[in-house]
């Protein structure tokens, strides 16, 4: 039982007040982050990347420059989010990201996971949802960076496999959409199918976000009661060569099961 003498009551009031102030600030800061993201997306897509086209060089060289710029911009955005106090984060093992032909697979608890993965992976190709091509704030950057759409089509499978064979590293969220909190993870077989065909290495990244924020179907203003902590841990590579003796449909089903096992063991779902 709390002792209700005036000093403790005062302390409780003070505590409640600081909590309210923190909440209001984080709500404002969250809005600010969205605004900054949108404006930066427009500025990069409509000003910076088109200007970079003027630099002489091949298409591949241009894409390299765009991706390097995009990576730095994402890193700055991540640091901005941390700076204004909406989140803290830790990224373990980033030095193992960005190898040639590497498929980087991550679970997807929150809208902003991809920002961190782009920020910490040099020259990444991302498989992102097709809606980003219709969003005015993201369409030009995803086009300039040469990202691929996640619609489960021939183009997606062949395009992603070609990117891996070319030696690009590819970031995929095998869930295809954000994780539904409290439900078992499900992976679309697209990632596993491409992995057995074309990945040189398959590297899992385990993402934790506590408390839940910007999950599927959560509006931006529904912010958590306290500052969010993100943890990214790059796991050891998952062996894919052992799965290649079977034809792709069978191999990809088996490899998908393996992926679910690996992620389940780490994240307990």
């Amino acid at each position: 039982m709390q002792d209700l003498n005036p000093r403790n009551v005062e302390r409780l009031q003070f505590f409640a007040m600081t909590k309210t102030i923190s909440y209001c600030w984080r709500l404002f800061a969250t809005a600010l982050c969205f605004a900054v993201f949108g404006l930066a997306g427009l500025f990069l897509g409509l000003v910076v990347f088109p200007l970079m086209r003027l630099i002489p060089g091949s298409g591949a060289a241009h894409r390299r420059r765009v991706r390097a710029t995009f990576q730095h911009a994402m890193r700055a955005f991540v640091e901005f989010m941390r700076g204004v106090g909406v989140l803290t984060y830790e990224f373990q093992g980033a030095e193992r990201l960005g190898r040639p032909g590497q498929m980087i697979l991550a679970n997807h608890p929150s809208l902003i996971d991809v920002c961190f993965l782009i920020a910490f992976t040099p020259q990444a190709t991302c498989i992102v949802k097709s809606a980003l091509w219709r969003n005015p704030f993201t369409r030009w950057p995803v086009v300039a960076a040469g990202y691929l759409s996640n619609a489960p089509t021939f183009e997606m499978v062949e395009g992603t496999a070609a990117a891996l064979r070319e030696g690009q590293s590819v970031i995929i969220f095998p869930e295809g959409t954000r994780t539904t909190p409290g439900q078992a993870m499900q992976f679309y077989r697209g990632a596993a199918n491409i992995a057995v065909k074309a990945a040189v290495a398959v590297t899992p990244v385990f993402v934790r976000c506590d408390p839940t924020t910007l999950a599927k179907n959560m509006p931006w203003y529904q912010i958590p009661p306290r500052r969010v902590r993100f943890t990214f841990r790059v796991g050891t590579d998952i062996d894919v060569k052992g799965f290649r003796s079977a034809p792709p449909p069978i191999a990809s089903r088996a490899f998908n099961e393996r992926l679910l096992q690996v992620f389940g063991a780490e994240l307990g779902t």
Partner: peptide
């Protein structure tokens, strides 16, 4: 599914 269709094609 559509992913299998790629291998079938």
């Amino acid at each position: 599914d559509s992913i299998d269709a790629v291998d079938l094609i």
